[in-house]
């Protein structure tokens, strides 16, 4: 059960070593930088040091409580991340698959719009543009509320 924010690349297999021992199922999600039709070279990710780590830990603990997870791990990178490289990962371990799938989905919805990260596109033509939050991300998050 851990949340981490780091600049360095990560190795998924290494992150999963010893993860979720005794669980019936483990779900992992890995986010990867898209090239957006060839227009992008990298994403630059800014975060709120201190607050980000603490909030990720809170969201993980909340997911564990809600879905009965036996283990969870959140890792999110910041800084410049090249197209094709891994941005972040979420892993959830539970006795049965549905809890693990749902908890991973839940965590991703919280990370998308309630974790203090901001993405900036670094484009092939040298320009930069902040990525705007999507209304659909708020809709996704709303699915988990009031229940």
């Amino acid at each position: 059960m851990s949340a981490r924010v780091q600049q360095a690349a990560f190795d998924l297999a290494q992150e999963l070593q010893g993860f979720g021992q005794g669980a019936g199922g483990i779900v992992t999600f890995t986010g990867i930088v898209r090239d957006e039709g060839g227009s992008l070279t990298a994403l630059r990710i800014e975060h709120y040091p201190g607050m980000t780590e603490r909030l990720l830990g809170e969201y993980g603990a909340r997911a564990a409580e809600r879905f009965g997870l036996s283990d969870w791990r959140i890792l999110h990178r910041h800084g410049d991340i090249q197209v094709g490289d891994q941005i972040m990962m979420v892993a959830t371990a539970a006795r049965h698959r549905r809890a693990a799938f749902e908890a991973a989905d839940y965590l991703m919805d919280w990370l998308k719009s309630r974790a203090p990260f901001w993405k900036q596109e670094i484009r092939r033509d040298g320009s930069t543009a902040w990525v705007a939050a999507k209304d659909s991300d708020e809709d996704d998050l709303a699915r988990w509320q009031g229940a």
Binding site: G31, Y48, M51, H76, I87, M88, M108, L111, K112, S113, R114, A115, P116, F117, W118, K119, W130, V131, A132, A133
Partner: peptide
């Protein structure tokens, strides 16, 4: 206090 645009993690 911190001010920022809507967050775009994940």
């Amino acid at each position: 206090l911190a001010f920022f645009p809507p967050m775009t993690g994940g």
